[in-house]
Computed example of a mutant assay.
Amino acid sequence: MVATVGFLYPGHSAEDEFPRLEALLNEDGAEVRLPLTHTDIGTDAHRVDALLEMGSMDRLKAGLAELTAGHPVEAVVWACTSASFVYGYEGAQEQARQLSAAAGLPASSTSFAFARAIAALGVSRVAIAATYPEDVAALFADFLKATGVEVVAMRGSGIITAAEVGTWGRDEVARLAAEGDDPTAEAVLLPDTALHTVAWLPELEEALGKPVLTANQVTAWEGLRLLGHRPVCPALGRLFTRSAVS
């Protein structure tokens, strides 16, 4: 039976990661479908005011109506980190709860995907290598701390728009991960769904010698987790190996 998870993706930047994720998972026999609908983002800016508007329920519900009309999805994930953690831990919980209620399906967001992926790997100390400005990256650190995660290092890159992040390639991503790492961190997090990372996950982990969790990777994993699926796909990093636990 094919497992189908639907994603609400803000705007246009690295949405091509999801067909890649689907193809890699199915190559390893997972039998999954990962359809995606774009939401209207309003202003493309990593600013608190713009992010609060981007993650508003009116925008999410509009995208949800399109997603569920076109696909027989069994769970829904808001494929955005910044426009979920910007609400704080409790606010992000309420956002996911309202999304679930509107869909009549299990629902989550990329922020919670990171927290649950960290737990699945059995680590507790992480470094954040973010594309965001420092103040927005700090809000992600606060969110993770509220889940019991120890943030030992945080690096912001000052990038304002998702459109710019979406142009980054292998070299920029590798540099971001390396510069954001810390010797005491057990994993490195790259928390922007506008960032292309899926093609380089094993390479990033080999270079750093530790798990690397990236936004689109954990978003897909979280959606499948909602359906009780734990596919094994080494091409998608240590999170998708048998060593990761539920």
Rank of each mutant, 00 (worst) to 15 (best):
R225H: 11
S13T: 08
L67T: 06
A62V: 14
V86T: 01
L201C: 06
R97D: 01
E172K: 14
L236C: 03
E150V: 14
V152I: 05
V218H: 07
Y87S: 03
E222N: 14
V149L: 01
S82Y: 00
M54V: 09
R225I: 04
E172Y: 05
E206A: 15
G156Q: 04
Q217P: 04
A187E: 11
S84M: 07
A162I: 07
G223W: 03
P202K: 10
A187P: 10
T214Y: 07
R155H: 06
R225N: 08
M54P: 04
L8N: 10
P35I: 02
L51K: 00
L190P: 03
G6S: 04
A235L: 08
T37L: 07
R47K: 08
A45R: 13
T68M: 15
W168E: 09
W168R: 14
T161M: 12
A199C: 05
R230I: 02
V245T: 15
L224G: 10
R170V: 10
V123F: 02
T68R: 15
L52G: 06
E164Y: 11
P133D: 02
V86I: 01
P10S: 05
G237S: 02
A119S: 14
S124T: 15
P191I: 03
A215P: 04
T81M: 01
E31D: 15
R33S: 14
D28G: 14
L36K: 06
A120V: 03
D16N: 12
G42P: 00
N216R: 10
T197G: 11
A30T: 13
A101Q: 15
P19Q: 09
F7Q: 08
G158E: 05
F18Q: 12
A194S: 15
T167P: 02
E74G: 08
V2T: 15
F7S: 11
D58R: 10
M1L: 07
A92F: 07
T43M: 12
A92N: 15
F112A: 01
E134Y: 12
H229F: 09
A103L: 02
A115R: 00
H196E: 12
P10Y: 02
V126Y: 01
A162E: 14
E15W: 07
E53I: 08
A120K: 04
L60N: 08
R47W: 02
S108V: 04
L226Q: 01
V73L: 00
D49V: 13
D181F: 05
T68H: 07
L236K: 06
P202H: 11
A141L: 09
A50W: 00
I159T: 14
R170Q: 14
D44K: 08
P10D: 05
G42E: 01
W168L: 13
A69F: 05
I128L: 06
V218S: 07
A103Q: 05
R47F: 01
A115K: 00
G6W: 10
A75K: 04
A185N: 09
S157L: 14
A163L: 13
R225F: 04
Q98N: 09
A130M: 03
